[in-house]
Design a protein around this nucleic acid. Structure first.
Length: 526
RNA sequence: GGCGGGGUAGCUCAGCCUGGUAGAGCAAGCGGCUCAUAAUCGCUGUGUCGUGGGUUCAAAUCCCGCCUCCGCUACCA
């Protein structure tokens, strides 16, 4: 990849460091990892950013409640809770940004100063219902008959002098943008909501706070800190050098990555990303992201997983039983990205057993066992099944289109269908029967080679979603010495037939996806 | 209140735009096979298609009302 090629740049939201990550955070981050790994596997230059959002009142309070300073609290949580989870889940991010890092705070200040100079910032009064119990401004929806829903106490109307961003000025441009670029906000339902919201009228945004000080100081007004969302959204651009001089390292990085190709967001924070963020960029004279993609919720028992419930499910609760690959696979395969999806332990168990253990794992198992048994563990001569190779070519094509369009379910489905087809091929050709007749040795060899080749392709295609088990498989197939590392295999060439070299050592290693004990008891709340 | 989406086999869902004997996967039952992780292959059953009307020779599919779940949005005051 040449240094000047525009990178495929994908971001996750930066997560609020209030608490440890739950499976909702992991869902988004795994999706981003899957898609970026896929693009890397296509041979593209890729930049994958995730990180943490560390400013704001809530973090400050949580820190206080835990008897520490905000910065210490963030440091501790990032190192002990967040990064380890991403490591465990095999998240291969290229950069991890924290909003308390100087590279972020300095660039936010620069950017804001720029908006000020361009006249998009003005001083105004924020007036709104304020609950003393919560110490928070409330939205109309948070109120019940004029009282705070949480405290059941009347709210006060409080006025605060803040700096405002002329958000309303960009409404027509935003509407125009989303009307002209359907792919700028997906899925379609999300785009419709954004348009409806924009057309309903949008007022200017208060972008500073004076009631607490855990935040980035407004450059020209040290009594105010930048509103946490205004601060946080900028991370996507500050992380790659926003506001740096063109010839500087940061400037070059920015040139190479911006605009972002995809911002992955949960649908709860869609509006921030699809309205405020592009308006900020427009004001700064910077191009807007190519796509904001809002994914759905995870449902449990048909109900929306509540935040408190979600917190209860740590990724490790699932990975300790099913393993990391199955975790990654399940959420991408079972839930249409963009729609809400039901998650249940039972469904996950069923898919694990049927799709991973019985279809994929078992295919690897039967092939390697037969090569050990019938060929002394040595891959026989090249052969080609036209049917399999053509089907594979089609599979790669379909999967690539779907995955690049963020239709992960269809993409993985196509790959797993091919896996099923290969299983069918083995069953239909009956190598175990052919093996009984020494005269049919060539036929036997061909069947086994074709099956091995199919598995070679499956390892490549499934690597982005299941890096651990496919790497094992790559080893079983003795592929590395001839073909190199698995992550260097290019998607577009995966279907060219006959890559495994005859004579390679094939071994039946440990089972890829062992059958799991029924695990219900410890999980049902007794 | 307005807008949008959903309610189809035990489970998750497709079909609905372009009406014509109700589909897939998983689960379940029966039989076969044995290379494989009690794997796999073949066969089998399953549904008042939320509800009440209407249009039509014919409606899950089109039209109207209603119930219900969800999301966005507005507001009672």
């Amino acid at each position: 990849m040449s240094g000047s090629e525009k990178s495929f740049y994908l971001t996750t939201p930066i997560y609020y460091v209030n608490d440890a990550p739950h499976i909702g955070h992991a869902y988004t981050t795994v999706a981003g990892d899957f898609l970026t790994r896929w693009h890397r596997q296509k041979g593209e230059s890729v930049w994958y950013l995730t990180g943490t959002d560390e400013h704001g009142q809530k973090v400050m309070r949580t820190a206080e409640a835990n008897g520490t300073k905000p910065q210490e609290w963030c440091d501790r949580l990032v190192e002990s809770a967040w990064k380890p989870v991403w490591r465990d889940l095999e998240i291969a991010y290229d950069d991890f940004i924290r909003t308390t890092e100087p590279r972020h705070t300095e660039r936010v200040a620069n950017f804001l100063q720029g908006l000020m100079e361009k006249g998009y910032i003005y001083e105004g009064k924020y007036e709104g219902p304020y609950c003393v119990g919560c110490e928070e401004f409330k939205l109309p929806g948070d109120l019940d008959d004029g009282k705070c829903k949480i405290h059941s106490k009347p709210v006060e109307i409080v006025k605060e002098t803040n700096w405002f961003f002329k958000l309303s000025e960009f409404v027509p441009k935003l509407i125009d943008h989303y009307k002209k670029n359907p792919s700028a906000c997906e899925p379609e339902s999300a785009r419709s909501e954004v348009l409806a919201f924009l057309e309903g009228g949008v007022s200017d945004l208060s972008i500073s706070r004076s009631t607490f000080d855990w935040g980035i100081k407004v450059p020209w007004d040290s009594k105010q800190v930048v509103y946490v969302w205004f601060d946080a959204l900028l991370n996507y651009a500050t992380a790659v050098g926003l506001t740096d001089g063109k010839e500087s390292a940061g400037g070059k990085k920015f040139e190479q990555t911006w605009p972002a190709d995809v911002h992955l967001v949960g649908k709860d924070i869609l509006r921030f990303h699809a309205v405020i963020w592009p308006a900020m960029l427009m004001a700064g004279g910077i191009s807007v992201p190519k796509k904001v993609f809002a994914h759905g919720w995870l449902l449990v028992g048909g109900e929306k997983m509540s935040k408190s419930k979600l917190t209860g499910i740590a990724p490790s609760d699932i990975t300790s039983h099913f393993g990391v690959d199955a975790f990654r696979y399940y959420f991408m395969r079972a839930i249409p990205f963009g729609s809400d999806g039901s998650f249940s332990w039972e469904d996950m168990s069923a898919r694990y057993t049927s799709e991973l253990a019985n279809d994929f794992g078992n295919l690897a198992s039967r092939l390697t066992a037969m090569i050990e048994k019938y060929c002394g563990g040595v891959l026989p001569a090249r052969a080609e099944s036209k049917e399999l190779s053509q089907s594979l070519a089609k599979t790669v094509d379909v999967a690539d289109k779907a995955i690049c369009a963020l239709d992960f379910q269809s993409g993985i489905n196509a790959i797993m269908d091919f896996c099923k087809e290969v299983n069918g091929y083995v069953t239909a050709t009956e190598p175990w029967a052919v093996a009984k007749d020494p005269m049919r040795k060539a036929e036997l060899d061909a069947i086994l080679y074709n099956t091995a080749e199919s598995l070679r392709a499956l390892a490549i295609l499934l690597y982005p979603i299941m890096p651990i088990s496919t790497t094992k498989l790559w080893g079983y197939l003795g592929a590395e010495s001839a073909l190199g590392a698995l992550d260097k295999q290019v998607i577009s060439k995966a279907s060219s037939w006959g890559q495994l070299s005859p004579g390679a050592k094939i071994s039946k290693g440990e089972i890829l996806f062992p059958r799991l004990e029924e695990k219900i008891a410890s999980d049902t709340k007794n």
